[in-house]
Design a protein around this nucleic acid. Structure first.
Length: 870
RNA sequence: AGGCGCGUAGCUCAGUUGGUUAGAGCGCAUCCCUCACACGGAUGAGGUCCGCGGUUCGAGUCCGCGCGCGCCUACCA
């Protein structure tokens, strides 16, 4: 067997894309349907179809790919289903901006032509995301790629809407909604972002009909144009005579009733009298309903004062605020102004201040949906990871409001509701022309649905629902969802509600909520701050494997990820390390190495059996870590095994004996398993190396390693730990006394357990190689030797006399101080009657042993100073 | 205002059911270009585990209070 040798330099760009093509064209990304193998399915959180990949996506893609590759290698019938979202407002805003540059508005263009532009834009950008996903190595099944506006998914949306409508869970109502005057659409409560803001509160007086005045406070003076009542507390003695009377509007001259309302008014606050604007404030809206007040809408869709505002008509709402205050002052009605910190709601998409606005919209009734969604999480049917999110999830669902789902946009799923001139409403999955009730011609509702409505169906609509498709039967409920905690309500909760209600089962069994990727200083990344990190640039500079490993290693549960490119450099160094180790192994191979399973353990030397034992334990722990979604831990384990166990120790131990066939087989076999273990995180480099080592088939379809109990040998590992500690101790000792690393030294093991001593003596060659030990004896130590406790063993070292300088003696003295402290604390513990009687026997025994060791060690250190010091 | 999370080495973070001399990576210092690797090797320095109190033979770990930071939810005119 002659294999092409690995290039000297690790150059990820030279092989990454070709591996991706090989995987994809081999069909490895597609599951078998039907299949006898257990299913494992992840649906991707669909990115904006015209968006570009940011580092947060890179994190989620990495973790999803990692789990999918691992499960696929474990033999699951794995499907990672990719796709994109039409992202209603966000995308429409982009195209509208583009139009604005041409001096056009969507209204000038008309709905049909505007939508053509939208689709054109979508076509131009739709490959961005998939291209970037591929660069990261994402093993999605592209043959199943979906887009929320595809025919199939649109059908699912219509079915969902009609079903919910027929069940009375979707209804139309005229009420206060959040209106964005810039986007010209209603938005849901979740799409309003609240920020603290230095506002002000003004007091002004309403003249009373029979003379006198009543003073009210407000943070929004312009809304007084829509006031239709003044409310006081029924028990407030200051106002008892006034209830039932009227005030006169100073600008509009209408009579305003004074009412008593215990729910709205807190007599302790301000003057205890409140202006009521039912059409522009949620609390006042409720009050208006309770008291059957007039609802006067004073704003148009642009946020300007309409004809109801009399002299203020045509003014923008903020202009009107100033003008109203000035006019009040002019009339001598303004009574005061004070600072008032308040939170103000803005549109998530465009940052415009949102207006509570009266309009007719479609809503989803949340009560029953939420109850079920709560239950499946409480019962553990759906697991949230980390589980502290359960409390947040519950709190939100318990206080949930009905969801406004209609949007006055064009880019999206048109609401399948039809109106006839007589006021009948018909809802239908297929287009209709005439009213089913009266036969009159109908018009379809011009509005579209909230994007999250279709996203809420994603886990089943992508699998073919409402059809009982093979994919749906095979993969629903899906296995795992990995997404950011920031869309727990927007998306996760809604999928759970919709899935349970419409698809007949939970949408996924486990939800892993990732943290936010931040910059090296822990600041949030943002384009305006200019601290964003472009994942593709990272892939280009460090290689996709290093990027993936970094993100996975940083992904501690429930924490944000402070991303420092230093970290990425470190993991590229790790990739280079793997590469170089492989080059070394490859150089030693002769082509006749049997697989690990074919080796007779009894014919192997301890070093080989040791690395196999370490490997098996690592395999066990890595599998457990993946199982628990502890990506950080798995990465740590892999890093440590490959670098600090395999490279630092095993390769060094094997160097002298690598000519032997068994040793070569172990060198190769362990490396191959390490590559398999690493493959889910570092798919490219592992494939490249494995191919050069003559691995049979691609890693992507190989079997993921499983622990081999027969390889595990605790006693042997203890022996190696002793050997390592002896070598480390000797090196450390040399450094301390200033003895050159290669200066030969003789050692004698004093009072060391016979088996252990024999084991160490059997490794004389390795001791010579790694610690320049020229002789290793047992029994009586030679005269003038220095005694040390290395690896828990008493070792006599033959050192040149007088080799300790002041600095070295200082070091020893510091160690003595430290040990003295330990000795005193242990003695104290052992003198404590309560400790002896209550602590478990093995703990007490451990303390005794420790004390003995400490005392011996102290003795040796002092002897050392005597023997070789000064 | 309520809820949640965090506070461990210079930096970023681990730390399993409480077990006693608290770990990793990076950074730093000293030495070494030893025939896989200087994106490397060897060795080392560095911590009152935010503070106070409690439970316990024993607390980074459990409980209470406080301080600081972050996030989420909320219609305080």
């Amino acid at each position: 067997m002659s294999l092409e040798s690995l290039p000297t330099r690790y150059d990820p760009e030279s092989f990454e894309s070709s591996w991706y093509e090989r995987w994809e064209s081999s069909g490895a990304f597609s599951p078998e349907v039907p299949s006898d193998r257990p299913p494992f399915c992840i649906v991707i959180p669909p990115p904006n179809v015209t968006g570009i990949l940011h580092i947060g996506h890179a994190l989620q893609f990495t973790l999803q790919d990692l789990v999918i590759r691992w499960r696929r290698m474990q033999g699951y019938n794995a499907l990672w289903l990719p796709g994109t979202d039409h992202a209603g407002i966000a995308t429409q805003v982009m195209v509208e901006r583009q139009l604005a540059k041409e001096g056009l508005s969507r209204h000038e263009l008309g709905r049909e032509r505007f939508l053509e532009r939208m689709w054109q834009w979508k076509e131009e950008h739709k490959d961005n995301i998939s291209r970037q996903a591929k660069a990261l190595g994402s093993s999605c099944d592209w043959t199943r790629e979906r887009f929320t506006l595809d025919e199939g998914l649109s059908r699912a949306v219509r079915r969902a809407f009609v079903t919910l409508y027929e069940e009375g869970l979707i209804y139309q109502d005229r009420r206060l909604i959040n209106w964005c005057p810039r986007c010209h659409t209603a938005i849901s409560d979740l799409e309003v972002v609240h920020h603290e803001h230095d506002g002000a509160m003004w007091d002004f007086a309403y003249p009373l009909e029979g003379g006198g005045e009543i003073v009210v406070s407000t943070t929004r003076p312009e809304t007084m144009l829509g006031d239709t009542a003044i409310a006081v507390h029924p028990d407030d003695p200051r106002y008892t005579g006034l209830v039932g009377g009227f005030a006169i509007h100073p600008f509009l001259h209408r009579r305003i009733p004074i009412i008593a309302d215990a729910d709205l008014v807190d007599p302790e606050l301000g003057t205890g009298a409140v202006k009521v604007t039912p059409a522009h404030d949620p609390n006042d809206f409720e009050t208006g309903r309770r008291h059957d007040l007039e609802f006067i809408n004073i704003l148009d869709s642009e946020g300007r004062i309409n004809a109801e505002g009399g002299p203020f008509e045509g003014m923008d709402r903020f202009e009107a605020r100033k003008a109203v205050l000035e006019a009040l002052a002019e009339k001598g009605l303004l009574r005061g102004e004070k600072k008032h910190p308040m939170s103000i709601g803005r549109c998530q998409r465009c940052d415009t201040v949102v207006e509570p606005w009266l309009s007719k919209q479609w809503f989803v009734r949340m009560e029953t949906l939420a109850r079920k969604a709560l239950q499946v999480v409480r019962d553990g049917e759906i697991k949230l990871v980390p589980d502290f999110w359960i409390a947040t999830y519950e709190h939100w669902l318990e206080n949930i409001q009905d969801w406004c789902i209609s949007r006055q946009l064009w880019w999206g799923h048109r609401i399948p509701a039809f109106f006839c001139p007589r006021g009948h409403v018909a809802v239908s999955e297929t287009p209709i022309d005439t009213c089913p009730e009266c036969g009159a011609p109908v018009e379809q509702d011009p509005d579209v649905l909230d994007t999250w409505f279709s996203s809420g169906l994603w886990p089943f609509s992508t699998l073919g629902w409402p059809d009982e498709s093979e994919d749906f039967r095979t993969f629903y409920p899906t296995s795992l969802l990995i997404t950011g905690f920031d869309i727990l309500f927007f998306w996760v909760a809604r999928m759970i509600m919709m899935g349970c209600h419409l698809a007949g089962d939970i949408p996924f069994r486990t939800v892993h909520l990732t943290g936010l990727v931040r910059d090296a200083k822990g600041d949030k990344m943002s384009k305006t701050k200019g601290n964003t990190i472009d994942p593709l640039e990272m892939v280009h500079t460090y290689g996709a494997d290093a990027v993936r490993f970094t993100l996975a290693a940083l992904a501690s549960p429930g924490r944000d990820l402070p991303l420092d490119v230093k970290r990425m450099e470190g993991y590229r160094a790790f990739a280079t390390k793997v590469w170089n180790a492989a080059r070394f192994v490859q150089m030693k191979l002769e082509g006749d190495e049997p697989a690990l399973e074919e080796l007779d353990l009894r014919l192997l030397d301890p070093a080989e059996r040791w690395i196999l034992s370490r490997l098996s334990r690592t395999v066990r722990e890595v599998n457990r870590a993946w199982e628990e979604l502890r990506f950080d831990e798995a990465c740590r384990l892999l890093y440590h095994f490959v670098w600090h166990t395999y490279c630092d120790w095993y390769l060094e131990l094997a160097k002298g004996v690598a000519g032997r066939r068994e040793v070569r087989a172990v060198l190769r076999g362990v490396l191959l398993q390490a590559l398999e273990l690493l493959h889910p995180v570092m798919p490219f480099i592992t494939e490249e190396i494995a191919a050069h080592l003559g691995h049979d088939g691609m890693l992507i379809t190989s079997r993921y390693p499983e622990p081999v109990e027969a390889w595990e040998d605790e006693a042997l590992e203890a022996g190696f730990t002793a050997l390592q500690e002896l070598i480390g101790g000797l090196r450390s000792y040399r450094a301390m006394v200033g003895l050159a690393p290669r200066h030969p030294i003789g050692i004698t093991l004093v009072n060391v357990d016979t088996d252990r001593a024999a084991f160490l003596q059997a490794h004389a060659e390795q001791l010579a190689q790694l610690a320049a030990v020229e002789s290793i004896g047992t029994g009586e130590p030679p005269e003038h030797s220095v005694h040390e406790l290395l690896g828990g063993m008493e070792v006599a070292l033959e050192l040149p006399a007088g080799s300790l300088g002041e600095a070295q003696i200082d070091t020893i003295r510091r160690q003595i101080d430290q040990l003295e402290k330990a000795r005193i604390s242990t003695e104290k513990r052992l003198a404590n009657e309560a400790f002896l009687s209550r602590a478990p026997a093995e703990v007490v025994e451990g303390a005794r042993r420790q004390l003995d060791e400490t005392i011996t060690r102290l003795k040796r250190l002092r002897a050392t100073i005597e023997a070789v010091g000064g």
